[in-house]
Amino acid sequence: MKVKAHNRLLFQIFWSFFKISPVTFGGGFAMIPLIIKEIVEKRKWLTNDDITDVIALSQTVPGAVAVNSATFIGQRIGGIRGALAAMIGVSLPTFLIVLALGASYYYVQDNPKLEAAFISIRATIVAIIVFAGIKIAKTAIFDKTTFFIMVVGVPVLFFIHPIVAILLGAITGLVVTSIKTKLGYQIDLKKDKEVDPTIDPDYYMGAGI
């Protein structure tokens, strides 16, 4: 009987996130109100404070906020198997939608109208990348040092692998802050005002998520 109840819980976790998943258009933060409605209000698995914790934690772990927060919530409710159920639940609908779009692209790719549309769309994608860059710069760049790291980073990327560059960025953060502390500088590690992403989801749009 116990096994049966556990399996039912796993399915409920899966199904909760399966329903929420397709709403994650352009950012995992769009999911937060729905998570609260489903997980806190309807199922009563966790509290509002738990969700706030989970969202904060999800941003410090690599990966998409939508996937990370679902996995954290699944883990809290049903352990490792709960984590897996939530992750599959949140990923499966978007996987199928993306795959369907990809397959239909191949079905009509030789259509001259579609080719013409994509000539223009490719220019728009570059604009979206620039937009994402400006958005993230607003939180990332707030003093001379962070500005310097950004400026040096661009030419460096032409010579080293991006994964190595990311690791070097993290190491630079550690080294620079300890040097600054030793020299007696006061350092702010963040911009003073942190905008709550649940209040202004657009703020995080640039993060891609």
């Binding site: 410090t60 490719r122 994608i125 570059v126 990348i129 620039v130 994402a132 860059g133 993230i136 710069a137 939180t139 990332a140 760049i141 040092t145 962070t146 500005f147 790291i149 950004m150 400026v151 040096v152 980073g153 661009v154 460096v156 990327l157 032409f158 991006p162 560059a165 990311i166 070097l168 960025g169 993290a170 190491i171 630079t172 953060g173 550690l174 080294v175 620079v176 802050t177 300890s178 350092i187 590690l189 963040k190």
Partner: peptide, 24 residues
């Protein structure tokens, strides 16, 4: 420690996006 790593990581993420924009 995480906050200090992010101090260097976030500007580098910005560089990655600028680099991507140039490449694309």
């Amino acid at each position: 420690v995480v906050e200090r790593m992010f101090y260097g990581l976030k500007p580098l993420v910005t560089s990655l996006i600028i680099y991507a924009a140039i490449k694309f």
